[in-house]
């Protein structure tokens, strides 16, 4: 099995936060290609509410780094139109939860034009957006929703969990000729004003590099149980795996990194080895990622499994505000460990 993902520290000593790795990717690509521009709400002087564009205005100026009015429909469509005419827009939707005010432009236009045109029109847009909860931002500012975008054909969906992938996936997304939605969890960005996982600071090579879209990473190898997850939950899963190791349970952790295309082979290869599958998702449970991953195994060969598939996802309720309530539904490390023990029981 090939282990992909971040290089060891001997390869690169320099460490960046996920946010800074994203910005470096955008900046290096903008140096290379003058057709790239960035727009969105508060991505100029503010630098992006979650620091996804810090310093870009100072470097590239207001002709290429543009704050928009609060008009998501207008500027999502603007990105599509500009891409159709040969530019390579990067557009930020401040929170993915805001998709409701611009979904027609995303789904009926950006995602469908290439197909409807019989391949005659390309729409190379990067739509980056902040996802996830854990800091009491309530039901309209805490969702992940990648299942929604992965469900609808025509867009690639990438979800980095760490600084190395954040840079490489951003570069791949910018160079891709398709619309790519790039979903970054606030909790992996390494923001100074939010609780963060220590892995939100990590080694990042200075030179531009690509992380291929559609390739999962085995971020921990193990024999007993496969945990398939993505985004911030990768870190919770790794923390849980450390705890479980001391209890004699050896977990393999797969970071999907991309939902579209989905690396089904990586899931099957791991489950063939461990025989047990726990899928962890911060998105809602029903009709979502956890069911899709379970289907990957069920359709291929359910006999790979020594125990039934287990799912740990957000229950199908709006995300609550109160910390007590929110942490009653988030897939924390403790909850992952408990679910893993049940699979092994």
């Amino acid at each position: 099995m090939v282990i992909t993902g971040a290089p060891s520290e001997s390869v690169t000593a320099r460490k960046l936060t996920t946010a800074k790795a994203m910005v470096e990717a955008i900046s290096q690509e903008m140096d290379r290609d003058p057709s790239i521009f960035v727009m969105g709400e508060d991505i100029g002087a503010y630098g992006g509410i979650f620091s996804s564009t810090s310093g870009l205005l100072e470097k590239f100026g207001p002709q290429r780094i543009m704050d928009t009015p609060i008009s998501e429909t207008a500027f999502m469509g603007l990105a599509t139109g500009a891409a159709v005419e040969g530019m390579r827009p990067i557009v930020e939707l401040m929170f993915v939860d805001f998709f409701g005010v611009c979904m027609d432009q995303i789904y009926n236009h950006m995602a469908k034009i290439h197909y409807e045109s019989g391949g005659n029109v390309k729409v190379p847009v990067v739509l980056m957006t902040a996802v996830g909860g854990g800091y009491s931002d309530g039901a309209q500012h805490s969702q992940c929703l990648w299942g929604v975008f992965a469900h609808l054909p025509g867009m690639k969906v990438v979800v980095p969990s760490n600084p190395y992938d954040a840079k490489g996936l951003m570069i791949s997304a910018i160079r891709d000729d398709n619309p790519v939605i790039y979903m970054f969890h606030k909790g992996v960005m390494g923001l100074p004003w939010m609780a963060k996982n220590p892995r939100s600071l990590g080694p990042v090579p200075e030179k531009p590099y690509e992380v291929p879209i559609g390739r999962a990473a085995v971020v921990r190898t193990g024999r007993d149980l496969t945990i398939v997850t993505l985004s911030l939950s990768v870190h919770h899963a790794l923390d849980a795996a450390d705890e479980l190791a001391s209890q004699g349970i050896d977990c393999e952790v797969i970071d999907l990194r991309s939902l579209v295309p989905l690396d089904r082979e990586a899931v099957l290869e791991s489950v063939a080895k461990t025989g047990r599958l726990l899928v962890v998702d911060e998105d809602y449970q029903s009709f979502g990622l956890t069911g899709e991953i379970a289907a990957v195994v069920a359709e291929k060969d359910p006999r790979l499994l020594k125990a039934p598939v287990s799912r740990l996802a957000m229950p199908d309720i709006p995300i609550p505000y109160s910390r007590t309530l929110e942490y009653a539904v988030l897939p924390t490390a403790e909850r992952i460990a408990a679910a893993a023990r049940l699979v092994m029981a």
Binding site: T73, A74, M76, L78, T80, G81, V84, E85
Partner: peptide, 14 residues
């Protein structure tokens, strides 16, 4: 009405 927003982008590119 959703043909208007892409028109902005085409104009922007021009």
């Amino acid at each position: 009405a959703e043909g208007y927003p892409p028109a902005l982008g085409i104009a922007f590119a021009f």
